[in-house]
């Protein structure tokens, strides 16, 4: 079995995987990071979105070995202890989550977007989450949350 070594949420991790394992399964089953959700398993909904070197990928179809030597961020890597990441806090504050199943993936897409473009227009936010399907919310409060997060992060001045 090959060993997958990566920086996962800021920590070096090495884990034995099958060559054909997909990243979502390694995260969920081998590393217990159940925040990464599987909905379609076919790259069609974005529920399983994680960041690899800062870019969003659908981990349900992403060969785990591709993450070898890379930096992987999952939803569990965002909050600092009890302190939610500003994006997460904004999702709570505008009541964005309904069932919540799409939400980790949405937050990760939002994170990649704001890291790259701290002042997105509404259209850019929509583009940023256009690969994430939500069946509950109609997306408006999600877009609103991302706008709010961008605004707050800009006010705090710090890097996200």
């Amino acid at each position: 079995m090959p060993t997958l070594e990566m920086i996962l949420n800021g920590k070096e991790v090495s884990v034995e995987v099958e060559p054909g394992d997909l990243l979502a399964h390694v995260l969920r089953e081998k590393l217990g990071l159940i925040g990464t959700k599987i909905s379609c398993g076919e790259g069609e909904c974005g529920s399983c979105t994680v960041l690899v070197d800062g870019f969003t990928v659908t981990s349900c179809i992403y060969p785990a070995m591709k993450a070898h030597g890379r930096e992987v961020t999952t939803i569990e890597g965002l909050a600092k202890g009890s302190q939610l990441h500003p994006i997460q806090q904004a999702f709570v504050d505008v009541t964005a989550p309904q069932c919540g199943y799409c939400i980790p993936g949405m937050v990760m897409s939002a994170k990649a977007l704001l890291d790259e473009n701290p002042h997105p227009t509404q259209e850019e936010i929509r583009m940023g989450i256009s690969g994430n399907i939500c069946r509950c919310t109609g997306y408006y409060q999600i877009v609103e949350a991302i706008e709010l997060a961008a605004q707050r992060m800009a006010e705090e001045g710090g890097a996200p």
């Binding site: 790259g43 974005g46 979105t49 870019f55 969003t56 990928v57 659908t58 992403y62 897409s109 990649a112 583009m127 940023g128 256009s130 690969g131 994430n132």
Partner: peptide, 9 residues
């Protein structure tokens, strides 16, 4: 093509 995640990969 696809969505952002697919275009990234």
């Amino acid at each position: 093509v696809g969505g952002p995640q697919i275009r990234n990969v």
